[in-house]
């Protein structure tokens, strides 16, 4: 058997164990197909498959540690199983898939909820951190053109926490039930150009973020009493960006 067919066959059997025909498209003759059929029944293959699955689950769990800590065991396991069954969790750099996994989890959480807030917090951290290493502030002179459109920065997120962060952490550690949502959430802004990636935004900065739920022109934002200085600051730190 050619090396590439052996590797593709074995790799597919391990990655796509839920597929009805994982070897589809692999160039195998009848003997080679029989080899893989027999291999799948061996204790060694089953053991390797169980290691692969447990490693994939462990990688995914690591990438969403805080969010998963807040969820009941059954829900947590179901999320991990569904994620890994879809073929994820194979990348050794677990944080490479972290943002996607948190996005997958967030769609299954109640909005608003403490769990969703923490999920968005973790996702925002990945996003800002991924953007930070190569981040360069755009040219601010574009703000002089009032027709120039702005949007949310690609690596920026605004997160609302409905509980003091120290109480959230305590709850993760002790598995105590979470209290009701606070009516005065703590707002945090994540941006790749911020020294610590995160700060508590001003009212005007929050208003700017919300005004940019869809791209808007500089002129529109100025007409909402957002100052040019605020726009320049947000642009410089990557919270907002030019839309074109």
């Amino acid at each position: 058997m050619a090396l590439i067919e052996f590797q593709t066959g074995l790799g597919r059997l391990l990655r796509e164990h839920k597929s009805s025909d994982p070897l589809h498209g692999v160039n195998l003759d009848a003997n080679e197909k029989r080899y893989f059929e027999t291999l799948q029944e061996t204790a060694g293959f089953r053991f390797c498959a169980s290691i692969q699955r447990s490693w994939c689950i462990a990688r995914a769990a690591k990438s969403a540690h805080f969010t998963l800590s807040l969820l009941p065991d059954k829900e947590r396991q179901a999320l991990l199983d569904d994620w890994v069954d879809a073929g994820a969790g194979t990348n050794s750099f677990f944080d490479a898939e972290g943002e996607s996994f948190l996005g997958f989890i967030s769609k299954r959480l109640t909005d608003p909820s403490h769990e969703l807030s923490v999920c968005q917090f973790e996702q925002a951290t990945f996003r800002a951190s991924n953007g930070a290493s190569s981040y360069a502030s755009p040219d601010l002179s574009g703000l002089a053109n009032t027709d120039r459109k702005l949007r949310h920065g690609r690596h920026a997120t605004l997160v609302r926490l409905y509980l003091d962060p120290s109480l959230l952490i305590e709850s993760m550690q002790t598995r105590k039930p979470l209290p009701p949502l606070s009516t005065e959430p703590l707002v945090l802004m994540f941006s790749p150009g911020l020294p610590q990636l995160c700060n508590a935004p001003s009212e005007e900065e929050i208003a700017t973020w919300e005004a940019l739920d869809a791209p808007a022109s500089v002129g529109t934002l100025l007409s909402l009493n957002i100052s040019p200085e605020t726009l320049a600051g947000l642009l410089e730190q990557g919270t907002i960006d030019y839309a074109d």
Partner: peptide, 25 residues
């Protein structure tokens, strides 16, 4: 080895290191 080629030619992680077959190739 721990990667294989995907349908689109991109490299896919298997998720676990695998042995080489003892072949000349």
């Amino acid at each position: 080895f721990q990667t294989i080629s995907g349908d689109d030619g991109a490299s896919l992680d298997v998720g676990v290191p695998l042995p080489m077959p003892p072949t000349k190739e």
